[in-house]
Amino acid sequence: MQVSARNVFAGTLTAVVCGAVNAEVELTTAGGDVLVAVVTANSVQALGLAVGVSAVAYVKAPLVMLLTGGEGMRFSARNQLAGVVSALTRGAVNSEVALTLPGGTVVYAVVTNDAIKELDLREGAPATALIKASHVVLGVPA
């Protein structure tokens, strides 16, 4: 299956914490990167989400925020993935930024060209991807 989401993280579920309405589900990639999703309790049951299950997490690139120089800052975004800018594709208004994490996973973000300048994003620069757990969609093999 092909999807329009630019970020596709394949891995294994390493934690599932269920609540009355929602559940927090942790996916760990082969490279050791961890992504947390918040899904409904119904989705946990319908998809059979449990520790050890293979799954894929999807995040659209425009939902990924980028941060530079955030030392000493705390954020409510559950997923804070530090890496290095590995590619920058400029457009007329927006640019696509590829951020490679230490485990080898690549995270893509679409940000404005103004943000590229303001954050001084360039290949080789350190940056952090911020992704709200509610923006992560999980899928499992049928």
Rank of each mutant, 00 (worst) to 15 (best):
K132G: 03
L13V: 13
T40S: 15
V64G: 01
E118I: 00
T29P: 06
T68I: 02
E71M: 05
F9I: 14
V59W: 03
T89L: 02
L47K: 09
A115E: 11
Y58L: 15
N7M: 04
I131C: 05
L27N: 03
L119Q: 08
V17Y: 05
R78A: 14
S95G: 13
G124E: 06
G103E: 10
R6I: 10
G69C: 07
E26P: 07
L27Y: 02
G104D: 14
V110N: 05
E118W: 01
G70T: 03
S43E: 12
S76K: 11
K117A: 15
V106A: 13
V44Y: 10
S54E: 15
M1N: 07
S43D: 09
A129G: 01
V44W: 08
L130Q: 03
D33M: 06
L81V: 02
L63H: 12
G83N: 04
V36I: 15
T128H: 00
V84Q: 02
P62S: 14
G32P: 07
A115I: 01
A87E: 08
A23N: 12
K117N: 13
T12F: 02
I116W: 02
P62H: 11
M65G: 10
L88I: 05
V17L: 12
R90N: 07
V51E: 12
S86D: 07
T68E: 00
V106F: 04
L27V: 05
V84E: 08
F9T: 04
G91D: 08
E118R: 14
D33G: 11
P102H: 08
V97H: 03
G139W: 08
L13W: 11
D33L: 00
